[in-house]
């Protein structure tokens, strides 16, 4: 499952943040997304995941093949680790949560409500969710926040296993995961606030922004 991104422009709050982005994410590939805070990494990932429409360009991958891991883990505090994982597994039609539990070293915690987990344990549970989606393309936004060195190792192992099985991952992170990966620096694609007119807006007016500015 290959994701090809052509001439993509994404906007936040109606204002372009990234323009003319081109890259490919092939099966077996890990792409590290780099860029300073506020440069549009999250906006890009949300657009790729299909949560918001791009203002221009094309994404070849079907959102059905993508899973998105955000800052927020989507965990329910009153549900146990097992219940949280089982829920996402059945939503995605996956039968077993065992590999996810083992992969992120959650075996001793399965019956604990996630409210009683530490920040790092919660994060591990959030990442374990990726393994029960069964989807080939992972889009991850700062996945290693609040993880200790050992847990980062677990995460890196999970990513390696995932790409070895033909999956792919696009990861926005500031740390070195120790994974064999390519880098995508979005710095050069930052939208020039003055160049809004070049973006063909979905209204069909090339000079759309000019109309307002």
């Amino acid at each position: 499952m290959k994701m090809k991104v052509e001439n993509l422009s994404v906007a936040r709050g109606g204002v372009p943040v990234l323009e003319g982005l081109n890259f490919t994410l092939a099966p077996g590939q890990v792409l590290i997304l780099r860029g300073p805070n506020g440069s549009g990494k999250t906006t890009l990932l949300r657009t790729l995941a299909g949560l918001q429409p791009p203002i221009a360009g094309a994404i070849s991958a079907d959102p059905e093949n993508i899973t998105y891991g955000a800052h927020a883990d989507g965990l329910k505090a009153t549900l146990t680790v097992e219940e949280n994982l089982t829920f996402w597994a059945s939503v995605h039609g996956i039968d077993t949560i065992a590999p996810a539990v083992e992969g992120f070293n959650l075996s001793g915690l399965t019956h604990r409500p996630s409210a009683n987990l530490s920040a790092g344990q919660k994060r591990r549970l959030g990442l374990a969710r990726l393994l029960v989606t069964g989807r080939p393309i992972w889009l991850l936004d700062e996945p290693t926040v609040s993880l200790d060195v050992a847990s980062v190792g677990l995460f890196a192992d999970a990513v390696r296993a995932h790409v070895a099985g033909g999956g792919a991952a696009l990861i926005a992170t500031h740390i070195d995961l120790g994974i064999d990966a390519d880098t995508l620096d979005i710095g050069p694609f930052r939208a020039d606030p003055k160049r809004g007119r070049d973006v063909q807006h979905r209204d069909g007016y090339a000079d759309f922004d000019e109309a307002f500015l």
């Binding site: 949300r46 299909g50 949560l51 993508i66 955000a70 989507g74 969710r129």
Partner: peptide, 10 residues
């Protein structure tokens, strides 16, 4: 808690 994002992509 972000569940809605995940449900939207489910």
């Amino acid at each position: 808690d972000g569940s809605l994002d995940l449900l939207a992509t489910a």
